[in-house]
Amino acid sequence: MLSTVLLIVLGMVMVALLLNLWRLFRGPSTPDRILALDTLYLNAIALIVLFGLWKDAALYFEAALLIALLGFVSTVALCKYLLRGDIIE
């Protein structure tokens, strides 16, 4: 049962990923796109964790942790760029 559930959840996450991408392409404003990118990072974490469960490999958790950290940093940097232009001032 669990394998089936895993596949279903993976499918859901993939659909979510594509929807994010649609928003990223569609815009219309830059904050929208940043939001889409941020969500894309979140969904990538979900994807990588689920994939790790599916393939039964623990190697992916570092990657998930790093995506969480780096996604945050890049979102903040992008927002700062919109607000102030100069991200390190």
Binding site: L21, L24, L37, I48, Y81
Partner: peptide, 19 residues
């Protein structure tokens, strides 16, 4: 700015594929 955003998606996906 926009192409930078798309570029970071590309990077993310490449690293997912590496994983």
């Amino acid at each position: 700015m926009l192409s930078l955003l798309f570029l970071s998606v590309t990077g993310l996906m490449v690293s997912l594929l590496f994983a």
